[in-house]
Design a protein around this nucleic acid. Sequence first.
DNA 1: CGGGTGAATGTGACCGGTCACATTCGGCGT
DNA 2: ACGCCGAATGTGACCGGTCACATTCACCCG
Lengths: 317, 317
Amino acid sequence: MSHQTVSRVLNNSPKVRPATRQLVLEAMERLRYRPNRAARALGSGRAGGITVVTADTVLYGYASLLQGVEEAARVQGLTVGIRVVKSDSADEIRETVEYLGDPSAGWVVVVAFDPAGTGVLRALPEVVPVVAATEAGGLAGVDRPMIYLDEREAAADATRHLLGLGHATVHHVAIPSEAPASARQSGWRDALLAAGAAVPEVVSAGWDARSAHEAGRRLAADPSVTAILCGNDDTALAVRRALYEAGRDVPGDVSIVGFDDVPGAAYWTPALTTVRMDFAALGRACVAAVVGGEFPALEAPRLIVRESTARVTTRRE
Amino acid sequence: MSHQTVSRVLNNSPKVRPATRQLVLEAMERLRYRPNRAARALGSGRAGGITVVTADTVLYGYASLLQGVEEAARVQGLTVGIRVVKSDSADEIRETVEYLGDPSAGWVVVVAFDPAGTGVLRALPEVVPVVAATEAGGLAGVDRPMIYLDEREAAADATRHLLGLGHATVHHVAIPSEAPASARQSGWRDALLAAGAAVPEVVSAGWDARSAHEAGRRLAADPSVTAILCGNDDTALAVRRALYEAGRDVPGDVSIVGFDDVPGAAYWTPALTTVRMDFAALGRACVAAVVGGEFPALEAPRLIVRESTARVTTRRE
DNA sequence: CGGGTGAATGTGACCGGTCACATTCGGCGT
DNA sequence: ACGCCGAATGTGACCGGTCACATTCACCCG
């Protein structure tokens, strides 16, 4: 029995008789043989693995996507590596791209939710097999497979929900990943326009709670704001805090809606009305796209109405 | 110039003249040469990387630790892989151990906060170089390097803080990772004992918000509980919700304390009094322990008093 | 029953480094 | 100027698979 035959059963090539395959499999079991991943990668030129490039590992969306990638990769027998790019500085992008240039990095999944991610995606040489998880709509001028969750309709739903509750308009606090033409913003804006409501200026916040809190303070100071659509749940948390500090009740005085539906959102007080985003499924889809396995259906993001939104009241006690 | 000399400068062996090294370095730059990681791993038998074994990637403690590992690994030029073990089922542990048996897995960091992690740690063959992030005190009967954050004193502090506020005793909701003799529980119990307070039965909860909520409901139903030390911040969130549903105000009627200090904790309403745990530093320390770099000082967990704890009132309006 | 044919298996080189060892170099003592 | 010795460099095998190609096998047909 030659090493080649063994190699063939490992890669389950069709050119091996079932009986022979069985024989090899038994021998492998008996000898407790485990193929060496490094040797495999070296010989074939490509690695049996995926590396995910991300700007963060703690934020819910990123962590959740990573979880999805890992899960899908594991069932396929693929290793998963992780590489964080903190910023979109030229140096950091260059280093990351060099790192990914090594064939043993394998397939690459870049989380292109932010400038760091998109920067890497743009700079990656043609030869590196990559798939990107992006904002809805993908990235203009990039010719790479891209997958996304399209939350445009859900954003519009959320806006209409608020309008339907009697709010004159809906304000929006954006997170860093949002472009002006992003699905969140355009869904929100279009719904406002369609309803003939005023389109307030977007307030921008960072990923950190502090800046979201600051954004919340600005809005809380304006008595005309009664409904806020927040870029994500973390933002909503800080905005709600700012509202509380200003003495404005949620949802009594102001209604808020988040994005993501973090695991605890249903347990907030008040429970948060938010848009559920299935980042883990997005991660699994990325793996399928890059290695070509079963492609899971991506459930569209949808609004989950809970307690943080309410009919506007004209109470003046 | 032989390939061997190049290999030597790559591994910065001392046996190469500075002038020669410089020459090689320049040539590498000119040729845009990048060493192939797979070939390196194959030739040397060991991989230049770390793989993190963890039961979860989304929960704050785990995600944060992973972030710390990645950061430290990246500055050392090490790759980082990730492998999740969802449960401590025999099959899953065996598969994970087999996976780690491959030399190209490199050094291993196992997050042994739970049965899955400790199971892998116990089953790992002697030859696999590993370091474990564990509960305070380490694991009995395991002869492996272990690093931990010792929150015993902080747990005692939190308990004393609550007692000092006039609460007769402090209840405790435990998370899955806690052993009865864990630092959290023994710190809490000892402080109670030292103060001559009753030691209530521990209420156990899972990682999920639902079970924490259920635990909270049980406590909320008992009018004698006025102070609760929660196993982590996520638990505290759900417990606080249960209290709210039962019509009990926080901190007016019941004071709660969490563990971890998740990024948003300061922005809760009321802001959460909690114990800050620096999981990222723990992750960095694991890398240092396993590859032998700069060992960062581990800051001891400490109580951060905010708004969710207050003096017990005897108001009966 | 020989020849032809496609499927199954074997052969040796090769991936890009590292390792153990051989060789050459450079400076020193005499 | 010679020889010596340790330091610097070069040589070839090897890690454990994969690849391209050669060979053998089994079976069918005339």
